[in-house]
Nucleic acid binder design. Structure first.
Lengths: 322, 322
DNA sequence: GTGAAAGCGCTAACAA
DNA sequence: TTGTTAGCGCTTTCAC
């Protein structure tokens, strides 16, 4: 920076003003400084700036698992939204572990990020991490909620989504054949709420519990067959699970949708193009990202934490390629 | 930090020593300082530390697209490897754009990251970004290579992988029925090398070009049908593409593997559990991550850039769930 | 409109 | 072994 100042024949303060562009100044001088900077290949040290300003214009996103394509899609969309508004998004994965999550959040905090967006790993065990983070920086919970901690939340209405799915299932199959729920772990709010939503609609249908990944859906088919069920509708708690279910069904020789109908939840990323007739519930990812941006801008001030629950929409199954 | 020093009755330098744990010191004092720190909820400001030390123990990973599950898998594995060795991995996505990639890399550099790992967007247009980064920090190219720039590379031998696939295809189908390649864009080295590998094995087979995503595989089925092909083996340049192909085939009423066999490439993440009979080539992700760690540790010093090309392995198609 | 100077939080060299 | 001091690169008063 000193070099640029010398090269342009001004002081370091002027270089700073010329490049950060905040205050009014002689445009001719500004141009000269910018040219010198380019010529010398100078690039501001964000650490120096952040140390002085006490904040970096970076938002951290902590996800439970990057290999879940729904989280990847959330990350991509959030990055897009923030990028258009002067922020950079950096993503870190907890790899399913509460300890790694805690450690990663600590690292984010140490870097003086502007805000933290977190999809908590565990409805209970992530609470301490959230409490800690909230003392230092604006925090938003995304998609999954730790209710015990007073931190704003943005997500979709999982129970309403299940209601939409249930209506579809009943319409498509008024005879009321077998319905099975292939759920995820109940240690996340989304998993629990979707199970509750399903139970309210189909109190007597069997519900299996697993995790949010393809493998579980694949294995669940074995369990369903073992129950003696050979046709019906399978409601998966997420599209990744539905994908595994479809794979398992076809591998086991069933026909879709003749033998089994499969519906999912999330409606995003890869699943949009997976298999025929995957009907799903689409989460309003753009609006959720916008809501997060808004919270971050406000600094997530009050002790009165917002809980922004947006409405998902029904998406009918894809047809085959022409 | 001053507060902790006062609380423990020592100087700031001692607090620093006690918490970063580098130098020898009175263990009793160290314990006291650590206790004070915990009591006051003190956490080091990594910015201050990095500013002083001129480096952060963070490695940046720039990927073309987080929604590609193969890249997500690479990111997860790299994070795991680095985490075990004192580094933190932060991920940023270029969202398919060279401009966003350049901007993200600039941001990483401004943060004084310890090293940059990059899966370049474009075999040509990413060159400037690589050159710029290499001036400031150790850089490793991963999976895709910009040959024009002298920056070390870690990846797998795509041509050898295609050879393995070809052997399988010929064995499974000695009659030699129709083989079609559903490729990706040739603006990435992996896309180009896999196409070349295919061409060398099947000089006369048709090869379609598209992109590394599910949607393209799905659409490719339409093109194949339009060519009048109604059975054979489809070689996809990546598992994500194979996934789309399978979806398209089944949606169009074909049977797999009776009418069409499908093989993929990458062998990682979601694709491991997708559909029956998806045979693929598995990239040695763990060994690739280890190689990257090694390069980062060495500081990627010499002007003689390494090109570490590891051997992939053949993975036969999955069977159905029991 | 611009420069001089102070200081963000930390650590490394040196002195005690 | 510990304290003192200087300074990493930047921005922001406060004078001019």
């Amino acid at each position: 920076m000193k070099d640029v100042a010398a090269h342009a024949g001004v002081s370091a303060a002027t270089v700073s003003r010329a490049l950060s562009g905040g205050r009014a100044m002689n445009p001719e001088v500004q141009r000269r400084v910018q040219e010198s900077a380019r010529e010398l290949g100078y690039q501001v040290n964000l650490l120096g700036r952040a140390l002085r300003q006490q904040r970096l214009n970076i938002v951290g996103l902590m996800v439970p698992d990057l290999e879940n394509p729904f989280f990847a899609a959330l990350a991509e969309q959030l990055a897009r939204t923030l990028r258009g508004n002067g922020f950079e998004l950096l993503v870190s994965s907890a790899a399913g572990s509460v300890e790694i999550e805690a450690h990663g959040v600590q690292s984010f905090l140490g870097q003086q990020i502007h805000a933290l967006v977190i999809i908590p790993c565990d409805e209970l065990a992530s609470a301490d991490t959230l409490r800690l983070a909230r003392e230092r920086v604006p925090v938003v919970q995304y998609d999954r909620r730790v209710a015990a901690v007073d931190v704003p939340f943005v997500g979709c209405d999982n129970r309403a989504g299940m209601e939409l799915l249930a209506n579809h299932v009943r319409t498509a199959d008024p005879a009321g054949d077998q319905v099975v729920f292939v759920g995820a772990d109940a240690t996340s709010s989304s998993g629990r709420e979707r199970l509750e939503g399903f139970r309210r609609e189909f109190p007597n249908a069997p519900a299996l519990a697993g995790s949010f990944d393809v493998e579980w859906g694949y294995r669940a088919v074995g369990e369903i067959v073992a129950m003696g069920i050979e046709s019906g509708t399978i409601v998966a708690a997420a599209d990744v699970i539905a994908l595994g279910v479809l794979t398992g069904l076809i591998g086991a020789g069933f026909r879709v949708p003749q033998d089994f109908r499969v519906v999912g939840f999330d409606g995003i990323g890869i699943s949009q193009f997976v298999m025929p007739t995957l009907t799903t519930i689409r989460q309003p990812v753009e609006r959720m990202s916008d809501a997060i941006l808004e919270l971050i801008r406000e600094g997530v001030g009050g002790s009165e934490s917002a809980a922004i629950t947006l409405q998902p929409e029904f998406v009918s199954g894809a047809s085959s390629p022409s």
